[in-house]
Design a protein around this nucleic acid. Sequence first.
RNA 1: GGAGGCAUAGCUCAGCUGGUUAGAGUACUUGCUUGACAUGCAAGGGGUCACUGGUUCGAUUCCAGUUGUCUCCACCA
Length: 872
Amino acid sequence: MKELEKVYNPQEFEDRIYDFWVKEGAFHSEPDENKQPFTIVIPPPNVTGQLHMGHALDETLQDILIRYKRMQGYNGLWIPGTDHAGIATQIKVEEVLRKEEGLTRYDLGREKFLERVWDWKKMYGDRIINQLKKLGSSCDWDRERFTMDEGCSKAVKEVFVNLYNKGLIYKGNRIINWCPQCTTALSDAEVVYEEQPGHFWHIRYPVKDSNEYVTIATTRPETLLGDSAVAVHPEDERYTHLVGKMLILPLVGREIPVVADEYVDKEFGTGCVKITPCHDPNDFEVGKRHDLEEILIMDGNAKINANGGKYKGMDRYEARKQIVKDLEEGGYLVKIEDHTHNVGACYRCGCTVEPMASSQWFVKMQPLAEKAIAAVKEDQTQFVPDRFSKTYLNWMENVHDWCISRQLWWGHRIPAYYCDACGEMIISKEDVHTCPKCGAPMRQEEDVLDTWFSSALWPFSTLGWPERTKELDYYYPTSVLVTGYDIIFFWVARMIFSGLEQMGETPFKHVLIHGLVRDSQGRKMSKSLGNGIDPLEVIKEYGADALRFTLATGNAPGNDMRYYPERVESSRNFANKVWNAARFILMNLKEEDLSFSAENLKPEDEWILTRYNEVVRDVTETLNKFEIGLALQKVYDFIWDLFCDWYIELVKPRLYAGGEESASAQKVLLYVFSGALKMLHPFMPFITEEIWQALPVEEKACVTARFPVYDSKLTFPAGAEKMEHIMETIKAIRNRRAEMNVAHSRKASLYIETAHAEWFEGAESFYQKLSGADRVFINQPAPEGTVKLVCNGANLYIPFAELVDIEGEIARLTKELEKAKGELARVEGKLSNQGFIAKAPAALVEAETAKKEKFLALIVSLTESIEEMKNK
RNA sequence: GGAGGCAUAGCUCAGCUGGUUAGAGUACUUGCUUGACAUGCAAGGGGUCACUGGUUCGAUUCCAGUUGUCUCCACCA
């Protein structure tokens, strides 16, 4: 038998335990027809290669579920996420390149640049894996298999061609969100809106051949350069006479028409809107309806292009300044108003996005969304908690077409090939070098796909699709996806419709959504605030188990949680408690044969076994419902309160006495404790395994042991009830001794007066050990001069008369009496209510009746006691 | 503008399909080096479950409204 260190020190064993699991093949997950699969798809880690608190939360919840399922005999597989083609990766590398070598990606060229990204990617990938091990993550991460390799690219091409052939992918000129810093298009989901102070510039547009003019207001005056009309509402009498007339665009001198369009809100501003089809999504639509000229005025860096005339080459903000100045000088500027408005920013780099017309690839969402909506409505995929399905459905029902092309290099290149000679375009899974029409060389599309396009295929592309591999057969659809609510649109939704479209089946049965980890003041953890907490630092100080415990408990599913160091500390204290309980048990296990059997059980054994069984049942139930925090709370309460504070204390006299009674106690101790360890293992894997290795148990490792199962043969209602009565009286005695300031060392006799002598028989040692009694008498006359305690079903007498403060005692008893009377009134109120008697369940009526009896008896005893006191 | 969350002890939060003497951790008060643990043990104080109605025999729990607060989505020039 291995000894445990005297002091709980997780640093001493966590790494060793992890290696032990790997050596034992505990995370093995080859398809096995004799086992049920349990698959978890996990979100991508963040780009810095540094484990952050949110990711630690993801990993912890996933790991708890998969360890639990493995212990139930399931074949558990992680499908780890990688940010395998993200914009952020490229931007990060470009940043490093710029800083350290003063180069841009164009200086390096596509191929060399991609090599750089790939090396960098591997480096941080390794770092993340090592960090996850520290956390206890049982993901057997196969990097060769789960990276952006041949296979993944194959899947991407396959899907692209499939969708294109079904008419679900198209190329078109549309307004997209353009990030001038990342120099790429962004999808709607990648834009974050923020309120910013700005201005309304009111500008006068003269009517051609007239003294009239219209006034428009804009927040972006520089877009004036791209105006091709001014729109008014068709029923706006103020302007009907102008519709069809031409205006002279200030500074530019271009003639633009006044058009009538329902899009304009008569009530808002002057009722006139300048129309800039290439730089505003609504204007773009108006432009299409009225066949207006489309004038793009900026380049990829948001600098004014040749269409901007004299402003060419200016940055958009520079141009704004200059244009405002020129308008003012030309007498066109009517007024400037302060105005706060929402400005869209790139969610990666924070740069203000520019809406721009551009030729991009899109996925037609409506047909895909319809299936994805049906799948969730029909519960093929269930969100936990359920309310997040509303978030999902809301988004899906209002979804716009998805812009999937990105003007980046790191990513899957779109499998489209162009012939410059004859204009032919081919979409193909295979590379096409010569044009089948004219024989000229073809060139592949430069753009790459949105990260989330390939990420959306993750649940099946990683399993070998489009090949029909045995992994795919066995593990798809996966069991559960665990992620934060902030990623529902980016990833969850897209995996669902992609899975449905390509596999004909939803990619996972459950989506477990959790909240965000915030700092102690409720703020989001962020780099700019500097309030982020490094999980590795926490692990170093308190151990991975303590961090996992903290992340798994203390809040309801889907709600945000705050991070407090004090909470980790209290988790660590629990680990310490378990550690010391283990040490106590180990130093008391002296028997050769420790195999448990339900024989020679004492009431305290029956009590703890009954409670243990209940906890096994409850924990299993709650975990099956993904109520992870609740399950852990139950294990915690059982171990600390019931097992350590009560059972161990109750059983100490037997252990010290030795003999047959000690032997049976040892067996129960080991049985219950090892079972509790197994229940605790998914939550706190390291400490439970380390202790397991020291215990004389049959199963070789806690990680591969079988999760406890409820056993009706091991519940003993009678024994459990007897113990509850004894414990209630012990609490009452302790309470009174504390109130009277009786030293723990001062022993006293105890006289129990009861109509249920059987409840208290054989309990002498408990009273001696736990309530400072030296001798215990049942139903024997108590001597004069005692303290009387009134309990449910028994009166207790302790000879401490000299310590009694009569006045205080009367006050205390009176308070108790009032409380009991209040309870009685409540119960009687219920029982006298005919509606209650008639409609409430019978068991409840019975229970209330029993309560009434109990309170009646209590009131009689208390009243008597008060009278006695008054007579003294 | 649309949708959703939250409001329970000083603080952070549990409380699953209505019936509990409304809980935990932490903080606070008191007493304990009781042969696993002071990272501990024992005892205690502390809550009109935001407010107003409704449904019900019965509401912290379900429904509606009000107030406060947070978040997401859309976005009007």
